[in-house]
Design a protein around this nucleic acid. Structure first.
Length: 478
DNA sequence: ATGTTC
């Protein structure tokens, strides 16, 4: 398919409606990102146009500057659907790792307090947070009934078991619990996969990092988030593990069966969708919210073990003082109000970025906007941004979620063959602990775009503003 | 992303 677009301003490009598109599309890019898309990842722009063909889609279908090719919908995609106009829900618009997201913890420690105990802390974290494909915990005894409660209650269930502080919940998107969860719509196989995995990191781009605040760009917002120069922070990136994956798989299969019944023409089978107001659509949304709650609970339980690891590394609770700055997801579909309409916003590899005065913000952040956490790669840095009015106006209150790959996993492995990345990173002051050499090779810093470039576009387009940059000291990978 | 080809 031919992608023709017009440049609206420095970082904004519009693909006018044509062919089977019901609405136009918009993506945000710099000259460099655009050149990369045109030469290496044209298919992701075609996927963006495909999204614009789905019933009930609200103008425009969007992609953030970290757009890359994904299952059906592009990663970095944002699309809103109107339930009253026959709008659909699509598992491919949420992603396989339902409610995958990032949680930032701020500590009471300074970089100099940590430096002498960095390697020791890395070992303690690696012991307490299982990582890798199929990783399991043996010390958390869930049964089918308690897992159903996790699926209903999310992070709150974990806190009520004593694994966390009630205050933690205030600083999670949606309070750490999506409404409408229906554990009865989660298959037995998904339960089986989820039972041993709560409190585990997983593999791929998931990670646990200890960092320090290297630079503050916006002192006022940083102060509101409780962040300052040289402060030690922790960033946790993981999702709903095998349970969410199974939920996605189950419902894609179901949607493909029923697609003819609803007369939904799919330009790509991977766009499998059902009306929001249909039994199948509601079933997926109930299961998706349940899997989302599992992801919130997972990040909460990992937080508990991170606190334990800091204590085992010799930092008393009062000293490490680990507190949740924010926890936000980048793979889900949520009902929100935009321009006076209640719509279902799909964000796949895109984060909510609500500006000042928006609903669901903790009182401490209400006047500044919500934190937006943008992980980079393990060798460089990550960003904390803040949501803006511009995001509310232009992107259904959304922004980017990360750097985005430039090399495929295969190409990355080839490129780093023979190198010892663990040693290279150690020489750069980063203690890496990982279960798999392969994952480390796939996740090499050069496999990712420079996240600073993505963030520059976000800020230039007005859909987020830089607050602080975080530099890694310790990384745990699957 | 994923018991990395139920």
């Amino acid at each position: 398919m031919d992608v023709s677009f017009v440049q609206e301003d420095r970082y904004t490009f519009r693909i006018p409606r044509k062919g089977k598109m019901r609405v136009g599309a918009v993506f945000f890019a710099s000259k460099r990102i655009l050149a990369h898309l045109e030469s290496e990842d044209y298919a992701s722009l075609v996927q963006l146009m495909n999204v614009a063909t789905l019933p009930g889609v609200v103008e425009p279908a969007l992609a953030m500057p970290d757009i890359h090719w994904g299952y059906g919908f592009p990663i970095g995609g944002v699309a809103a659907f109107d339930p009253e106009a026959g709008g659909v829900v699509s598992p491919g618009g949420v992603g396989f790792d339902i409610n995958c997201g990032v949680r930032l913890l701020a500590s009471g420690l300074e970089r100099r307090d940590l430096e002498p105990r960095k390697a020791w802390l890395a070992d303690r974290l690696y012991e307490r947070v299982p990582a890798g494909v199929g990783s399991k915990r043996r010390d958390v005894k869930l049964n089918r009934r308690s897992l159903a409660r996790v699926l209903e209650e999310g992070a709150g269930w974990v806190v009520r078991q004593g694994w966390g502080e009630p205050d933690d919940l205030e600083f999670i998107e949606s309070g750490g619990r999506l409404e409408g969860a229906d554990p009865g719509r989660v298959s037995e196989r998904a339960y089986e996969r989820g039972l041993p995995q709560l409190g585990t990191l997983g593999s791929g781009n998931h990670f646990l990092e200890v960092q320090y605040v290297e630079q503050v760009y916006d002192p006022e917002a940083a102060a509101a988030f409780g962040l300052h120069q040289d402060q030690v922070t922790v960033l946790i990136h993981t999702g709903s593990r095998g349970l969410g994956h199974q939920v996605c798989q189950d419902h894609v299969q179901k949607f493909l069966q029923v697609a003819p019944k609803y007369g939904i023409e799919l330009v790509d089978r991977q766009l499998a969708a059902a009306p929001i107001e249909s039994p199948e659509g509601r079933a997926y949304l109930g299961a998706m919210a349940a899997a989302a709650n599992y992801a919130f609970a997972n990040r909460q339980l990992i937080t508990h073990y991170v606190r334990e690891a800091f204590e085992a590394a010799g930092f008393a609770p009062r000293e490490h003082a680990l507190r949740v700055v924010y926890d936000l997801a980048h793979n889900n579909a949520k009902f929100e109000s935009h321009a006076g309409r209640r719509v279902l916003v799909h964000r796949k590899g895109a984060t909510r970025a609500f500006g000042p005065g928006a609903p669901d913000l903790p009182p401490a952040y209400a006047s500044v906007g919500q934190p937006v956490l943008v992980p980079g790669d393990m060798g460089r840095y990550s960003y904390v941004l803040v949501g803006t009015e511009g995001a509310m106006e232009k992107s259904f209150g959304s922004s980017c979620h990360g750097a985005g790959r430039v090399l495929s996993r295969t190409r990355s492995k080839k490129q780093v063959k023979g190198r010892d990345l663990v040693r290279e990173l150690a020489a750069a002051g980063i203690e890496l602990r990982a279960t798999s050499r392969r994952t480390v090779a796939e996740e090499a810093p050069e496999a990712y775009k420079d996240v600073a470039e993505v963030v520059k576009v976000v800020e230039g387009a007005g859909i987020g503003r830089r607050v602080a940059r975080l530099r890694p000291l310790v990384a745990v990978k699957g």
